[in-house]
Design a protein around this nucleic acid. Structure first.
Lengths: 208, 208
DNA sequence: TCCATTTCTGACCATATGGTCAGGACGATG
DNA sequence: CATCGTCCTGACCATATGGTCAGAAATGGA
């Protein structure tokens, strides 16, 4: 089904152009969603002609799929890195900080996923209920052992993870809103770090 | 500029059809975003022909604008209701619960706004930096007085409001993801209420 | 019942869009 | 420099889409 993976870009030109296309596609898809984006927009942003786009990728779908698939691992890496043998609060705080840093450094990637999920995740539904669910369930189980050991507060692990997603991605996905409300003077991400540190510190502290 | 407001729907048929159109448009726009939605989809969902749609609304833009504008007041009502003279924690907790309830009861409306803001809010940019900013600044000032009086913890009011938005809207905007991860057995919103109660209770409690 | 107004439709239009194709330009390799 | 495979393009196509229009059908009031 998927003819990628075997025949990677070989020549210099292929590498440069596929890279430019994916970069441009990220820009456009993250701004307009899949249906709202057009090949002409992507081609223009990549500095290529539309037929040339389709010389490197067989279809609009394929570009989108390549983008999503290629970024999924990066996107989930921080959660994967959550170490069952680490110090519970450190592990969770580190995870949260990494997610926030990703929102800051890769807001377009965040919006790409947000657009996809918002619109019903038609292209990644299997990933959500497959790999993602497995990963989250796995880490939730780890967190549960920490709770049982009394090392962090007794809160639902799944919703703890959701809260990290929601609070960190909010600053990327709703950036224009955050900026509009805070004004251009304030640094939303810098402030968010302090705020979220405090929030999760309080949330995780076990009851006396 | 806006020729609405004066000539509201009068006849029974007008009322019924404009209602059906807005209902259908909410369904379609919230699922696909502005550019991703088509008039044919909306017309079909409303049980009308496309020309008939355009008999009631002058353009696709107009339908979208009417939807957004009509819902803004409803959407911001809970924040407006935050009472400076009320008991601080009760006021904030009530606000959070109302927002969560709105996410539960009106997920399509939430996604409509989410789509709009995600894609750069081209049609509501003025509202964000105008009315919304004013409202938020106003309520943030109220919260700040509560903090100064030592009645709630010393946390940034703007980010407190952001956190309420992020955490409650997450359950509507990313519903498919939440459902995929949680499975169909669990009731995300019921669980969220308990989780968020606990979270904000801990967040707001003043330092000893 | 008759007429004016409102409501609705099929046919149509201009443009946008995803995608194709024949062939030309280019670049590396002998 | 000849040649072969890579790279690229203009022209083109089928379909989708937002929107228009002349006129038919329904509605409502006198």
């Amino acid at each position: 089904m998927d003819d990628n993976g075997e025949n990677r870009p070989k020549t210099r030109i292929q590498r440069r152009n596929t890279q430019a296309i994916l970069e441009a596609a990220l820009e456009v898809f993250s701004s307009y969603g899949f249906r709202g984006a057009t090949l002409d927009q992507i081609a223009k942003a990549a500095g290529l002609s539309k037929p040339n786009l389709l010389y490197y990728f067989p279809s609009k779908e394929a570009i989108h799929a390549e983008l999503l698939g290629g970024l999924l691992d990066v996107w989930l890496a921080p959660l994967r890195a959550l170490n069952p043998d680490g110090e519970p609060r450190t592990e969770i705080m580190t995870y949260m900080r990494r997610k926030l840093e990703m929102s800051r450094a890769m807001p377009r990637e965040s919006r790409l996923f947000a657009n996809e999920v918002l619109q019903g995740a038609p292209r990644v539904a299997e990933v959500l209920s497959g790999g993602l669910k497995t990963l989250v369930d796995d880490k939730a189980a780890v967190i549960r052992t920490w709770i049982e050991a009394g090392r962090i507060a007794r809160i639902d692990p799944h919703h703890l993870i959701f809260s990290i997603w929601a609070l960190t991605q909010h600053y990327a996905d709703f950036e224009v809103q955050v900026r509009a409300v805070l004004g251009t003077e304030r640094d939303a991400f810098a402030e968010a770090e302090g705020f979220l540190d405090r929030l999760f510190d309080r949330l995780l502290t076990p009851d006396p």
